[in-house]
Design a protein around this nucleic acid. Structure first.
Lengths: 337, 337
DNA sequence: CTGTTAGCGCATTCAC
DNA sequence: GTGAATGCGCTAACAG
């Protein structure tokens, strides 16, 4: 795309001032040639670009942003980057933003509300043009702050009645209910739940119990969940009820652990024990037996979130501030009774 | 940690100027009270902090960075964020930087050198105080640029004879050789390789072949690799040689695919076919049979990289510019012949 | 310990 | 089309 850059001794403190001098134009003309070429004659643009390449100028976006009040960055907040669920979202977000010249500033709240509040503070200090959060913003102070700051905010992977600004996600309550309906439809009565202790997982559990109509044996593990925690969780559940027929897990990693532990104990899946996960990770289809799960299009969430922020930044009217991307149960061997 | 913030109407354009006025001190005193408290009396600090909370001031780090020439950001470049290998590195990086008040600006090069070059350009425009790359920087122009810019650069997950600046990683060549030694030690002769097409995977393959001493049946898949690609890869390999005894894979996802495909074809692992992966993903220990792999401490890489950048930023002398974190082969059932 | 002065590098006014 | 002045919000120098 770009012309090959000639051998240039890229110096440290090269500013637009130097470019202007080299090109024999004024500072502002150089600025326009790079940022608003329609206002400048073609010959001038070429002179300026030539100078840019020759002296190795790299625009200082900090300085530009200070004046223009547009930093061309978007802040992104995840609980922990290595939660596989959010990965496609972060990836799509980064890609979509990048395509419009925006960059993502990443923060990890670590499932800690105090830390989240502090982090949002620092991130706002960088004056991002938008904020995308996976999950809802928990701290009331941060919610007030963001609202009064007036920057575009998208809360993702959840739907709130009262988002700070915009939301892209789905109802975790409904996910839980749908899985419960599915389990009941199979005729399973002795049901159990293995779940992480984060808010969204708890919402799914709540929806699940609402349909089941009564409490069930439950193992709660600290987020982020893992295969090892899943193994332990099944152990706990079997202690509570030796004859469980089906377990609903709050993640595929947890569900894999349940599968493994079931096999280690000589339980046949799904005949003796059915298992359903959440997230539909890539590996789930390839486990033995293959794992049923709830599929959510995480990349789509990221794309839509980015789009909402970008539209808001460019002044386009945002029609729907709340987007439900839905979900679907993917039936595989682990529940194919 | 922070005192609870009283009800404050957090306004948009609150600047340090406002804080100073509210606190009845000069601009610079307010600045110092927040950024360099040792130079200011305790009473003044309290007055300023009180004003900060009352009017909801959020420091503009862009403006501060412009003057102080320290943006308190570090640029991070990964091929694709969702490659599980790099996740612990990115996470540890984010955490360690955050603990020192630095933030990560994330970029995805997408295994594309032209894109990488362009991305590095934009990222440098934000004047980060350092750059961490997973892998080596490929573009010669970018290498020159970074060198002459003089900012701390850490190349990770690889070791180069001539890093741009610093490096934290291990020798992929040696990984390949070690696995080959291991395979030969088992007495396996009919060996094959399933590998991604990225540079590091190719290095491992090269090291592998160097020890084996001759070419072997090889399936090359486009990065990023996946379980599905692994299944297909084994198919290809078996077409080339129906009687392969052992396959070395460039990732655990690929290896899982090989396992699955082997089972689908009625091959017993490891009796009929041994399999070794790379990366030692969390799920690998829990597969059936459990997967042998090469373990690398990705989080440690991230921590060291962050530390190197931070030390360099604070003027501390960096003793070792090249850090080898090593690796180890983890033997599990899939190769336990 | 505190204040005054002078920019950091650029883009937004206004002029021509 | 182009240019000169002005200031975005803050901090590094020097003074007091």
């Amino acid at each position: 795309m770009n012309p090959p850059v000639p051998h240039s001794s890229i110096a440290k403190g090269v500013t637009l001032h130097d470019v202007a001098r080299e090109a024999g134009v004024s500072l502002i003309t150089a600025s326009r040639a790079l940022g608003n070429p329609t206002l400048v004659s073609k010959a001038t643009i070429e002179k300026v670009q030539e100078a840019v390449h020759r002296i190795g100028y790299i625009p200082n976006l900090l300085a530009g942003g200070l004046k223009s009040r547009r930093s061309m960055t978007v802040a992104g907040l995840v609980p922990i980057i290595s939660v596989p669920q959010f990965l496609p979202t972060v990836q799509a977000l980064t890609e979509t933003l990048d395509a419009s010249g925006y960059q993502l500033i990443l923060g990890q709240s670590g499932y800690d509300h105090a830390r989240e509040e502090k982090l949002i503070g620092t991130m706002m200090g960088r004056r991002p043009d938008g904020l995308v959060v996976t999950g809802l913003v928990h701290s009331a102070h941060s919610r007030d702050q963001l609202r009064s700051l007036g920057i575009p905010v998208v809360e993702t992977w959840d739907l709130s009645e009262t988002p700070i600004d915009m939301a892209v996600g789905f109802s975790h309550l409904k996910v839980g209910s749908a899985v419960a309906d599915y389990f009941l439809g199979k005729g399973w009565k002795r049901i159990a739940v293995a779940t992480g202790d984060d808010q969204r997982a708890q919402q799914r559990r709540k929806g699940f119990l609402a349909v089941v109509g009564h409490d069930v044996p439950t193992a709660i593990v600290p987020a982020p969940s893992s295969v090892a925690l899943g193994r332990r969780a099944l152990g706990e559940l079997l202690q509570k009820d030796r004859r469980i027929q089906a377990v609903y897990c709050s993640s595929d990693a947890l569900a894999q652990g349940v599968l493994v532990e079931a096999m280690a104990r000589g339980l046949r899946v799904p005949q003796d024990l059915a298992v359903c996960g959440f997230g539909d990770a890539e590996f789930s289809a390839h486990l033995q037996p293959s794992l049923s799960s709830v599929h959510v299009d995480g990349a789509e969430i990221g794309r839509i979130a980015a789009r909402l922020i970008l539209d808001r930044c460019s002044g386009k009217p945002v029609t729907s501030r709340i987007v439900d991307v839905g979900f679907r149960i993917v039936e595989r061997s682990s529940t194919a009774a």
